[in-house]
Design a protein around this nucleic acid. Sequence first.
DNA 1: GTTCCTGCAAAAGCTTTGCAGAAGA
DNA 2: TCTTCTGCAAAGCTTTTGCAGGAAC
Lengths: 146, 146
Amino acid sequence: MNIASKTLPRKLAGRLIRPTIQRIKILDYLINDPCHPTADQIYKDLHKEIITLSKTTIYNTLKLFARAGIVKELDFGNSETRYDVIIENHSHFLCKGCGSISNFYINLDDWSCSELNGFKIIERNVYFKGLCPDCLLNINNKLPRE
Amino acid sequence: MNIASKTLPRKLAGRLIRPTIQRIKILDYLINDPCHPTADQIYKDLHKEIITLSKTTIYNTLKLFARAGIVKELDFGNSETRYDVIIENHSHFLCKGCGSISNFYINLDDWSCSELNGFKIIERNVYFKGLCPDCLLNINNKLPRE
DNA sequence: GTTCCTGCAAAAGCTTTGCAGAAGA
DNA sequence: TCTTCTGCAAAGCTTTTGCAGGAAC
């Protein structure tokens, strides 16, 4: 594990979550992996290390983390939920070419709108879709297929 | 159907979509219903009128409409996709109390961010979550449960 | 000893696919 | 006639649930 092995157990214990091996590994994966993985990606990768790890545990843990405010569940209109460690208020860019997700930062706190007078805004979510620099390059360098 | 019965067939034909009864009814439902329905809600309501209508046709039609740019598929992190007629650039407010979705309007076209230099932005999506005025009232009028 | 956690198997829920018959051009 | 459309049944996928054995306190 990349992050000091003592840090993560403390982080979990601080949230009243018993730091089991599975949970530590999953949190470590989420923190060190920048790709906003799906449950299945986490499973496939961690399963190599812990062969007994089950998907149920992945889902249990992710739901637990979400309720504890450690991760956020992201939805981009695909069938799969993606998981993101909550660091600070940031937004996401989904590349339609390669499916990668990039973070970007916009201050959302001030955003409102006269139409929402009387509404209590708890959460502001923003995501953009488009093409990342790599995919743009590929398109420009290659002849259009089809 | 609420909207003039000649208008919708024309609208579909203009998009090279054969205006069948099912498609006209679904489009009519989407245009006249402000609630951003799920496929199941559309099915339950239209099934009363057209008892032979199947869910497959609902899904086929919604996908067709989405590809034709008539509707947009919305995802709020629930398991169900919600469908919205594309009228103009608008955003959505999801009430965590009653699940209702309200539209609000913000000009998104100008939004960018230095971190996204080199990215091609095709779509900007914004959704807020919180409590609608009705649910806020209910909370204030009632004693907290639990 | 009691509570919490893990993981297999099965179920649940939404959406898609295969296919045959019907409708339309 | 030939293409397109509909709708039943079944499959596909992600996620959740039931439950029994095991670990932790």
